[in-house]
Write a protein that binds this DNA or RNA. Sequence first.
DNA 1: CCCCTTCTTTGGAATAGTTCTAATTATCGC
DNA 2: GCGATAATTAGAACTATTCCAAAGAAGGGG
Lengths: 147, 147
Amino acid sequence: MSSATTTAPHPAGLARKLADSGLRSTPQREVVYEVLLKRRDHPTADEVFTRVKPELPSISLATVYNCLETLVQCDLVRAVNFERGPTRYCPNLIPHAHFHDEVTGQTHDIDLPPALFAKLKAVVPAGFDANAVEITFRGKFIASSVN
Amino acid sequence: MSSATTTAPHPAGLARKLADSGLRSTPQREVVYEVLLKRRDHPTADEVFTRVKPELPSISLATVYNCLETLVQCDLVRAVNFERGPTRYCPNLIPHAHFHDEVTGQTHDIDLPPALFAKLKAVVPAGFDANAVEITFRGKFIASSVN
DNA sequence: CCCCTTCTTTGGAATAGTTCTAATTATCGC
DNA sequence: GCGATAATTAGAACTATTCCAAAGAAGGGG
């Protein structure tokens, strides 16, 4: 597989991305990443821990934090925060917003047209050099009759 | 100083707003609110605590948290979060974005045209009922020699 | 292969920010 | 002034996370 411009979120890509940063591929890192790809529901470190445990029963919570941090560093995963709640992790690398459901506590991805991102960055006054923007909606997810 | 200037909320308005919610006006609440109005640099609870202390030497940190929570509840103050850092407080009630300086840790208000807020809400898919949107830029503030 | 260095994992202790609790103190309506 | 209610206080408790020091892999050169 030839290298793409955008990394496809694939367990296989992990080893390469890690090597690029001079880091080793380990079972712990692989399983943590797989878990994130498998269920993209923005789990917390603790939730990742319980999902990884059956596969690697001797893994520690500290290692889960380490692995998640490593994945974020390697730009394979995004850390998402909402109002001092525990950090959640998201393997969707395409710029997008988040919707936080205040009833269920769930976090959903919201796609945004790239033009909007551009417009947002355009309103930042001179003197401010913004290299990232974070957009979070808060509200309720209303069951749609369509499914 | 950043842009977003507003209807200057006045300490006087506090008693009324509190009464509206069936709450009492107390020296602690008044001084906490005054401190927020006086220096609008998005202080943390701890920073508010040290600023209030000279005025009310016997106030406790718990009370500062209580007062801030009350002010947020009464819609006199906004709580602002950035990446699991301590909550900061902002008496600017007009919808606006925040710019977080990753070098100094300072938070600045950024005015946004109301049309942009409207556009943002428009991209939220059907089924999601958003009642608030939070926009945070991250980057560096490039020295303007003026302060 | 074996050794050496380096990287990684691990469990537990430590930390930061915040909330909880139970007791005291202030305030309002009568 | 009195009783009911609300607010404040100090300190303990809590949560999410990071730190630490020791033990465990994992390549690379001889």
